[in-house]
Amino acid sequence: MDDQYLNVIMGIIMNAGNAKGLAHEALESAKQNDFEKANQLMAESNQSLAEAHNVQSEMLTKEAQGEHTEMNLYMVHAQDHLMTAITYQDLVKELITLYKKNAQ
Rank of each mutant, 00 (worst) to 15 (best):
M1S: 14
M1Q: 09
D2N: 15
D2W: 06
Y5S: 14
Y5I: 04
L6K: 15
L6H: 10
L6C: 11
L6W: 01
N7G: 07
N7K: 14
V8G: 03
I9G: 06
M10D: 07
M10Y: 04
G11N: 10
I13N: 03
M14W: 04
M14T: 11
A16D: 03
G17F: 03
N18H: 07
N18M: 12
A19M: 02
K20F: 07
K20L: 13
G21Q: 12
G21Y: 02
L22F: 00
A23V: 06
E25L: 04
A26K: 01
A26L: 01
L27P: 08
L27N: 13
S29N: 00
A30F: 02
A30N: 09
K31V: 12
Q32C: 08
N33Y: 03
N33M: 03
N33C: 07
D34A: 08
D34I: 02
D34R: 01
F35M: 08
E36W: 01
E36G: 02
K37S: 06
K37P: 00
L41T: 02
L41V: 02
L41D: 05
L41C: 05
M42E: 01
M42K: 02
A43Y: 00
A43P: 00
E44C: 00
Q47V: 03
L49M: 13
A50T: 05
A50M: 02
E51S: 12
E51W: 00
A52I: 04
N54C: 04
N54D: 12
N54R: 04
V55S: 11
V55E: 06
Q56P: 07
Q56H: 09
E58I: 12
E58P: 01
L60D: 12
L60R: 11
T61I: 13
T61Q: 15
K62M: 06
K62R: 11
E63W: 02
E63D: 05
A64I: 05
G66F: 03
G66M: 05
E67W: 00
E67T: 15
M71N: 10
M71C: 13
N72K: 05
N72T: 07
Y74Q: 13
M75C: 07
M75F: 15
V76H: 07
V76A: 11
V76F: 10
V76P: 14
V76L: 15
H77K: 05
A78P: 07
Q79S: 13
Q79M: 14
D80A: 15
L82W: 05
M83K: 07
A85Y: 08
A85S: 15
I86P: 05
I86K: 11
T87M: 11
T87N: 13
T87W: 07
T87V: 14
Y88S: 06
Y88Q: 08
Q89D: 06
L91V: 15
L91E: 11
L91W: 11
V92Y: 00
V92I: 09
V92P: 03
V92Q: 01
K93P: 01
E94S: 15
L95D: 12
L95I: 15
L95S: 09
L95T: 10
I96P: 03
I96E: 04
T97S: 11
L98K: 14
L98P: 09
Y99N: 12
K101Y: 08
K101G: 07
N102T: 07
N102C: 05
A103G: 06
A103M: 06
A103F: 01
Q104R: 10
Q104P: 01
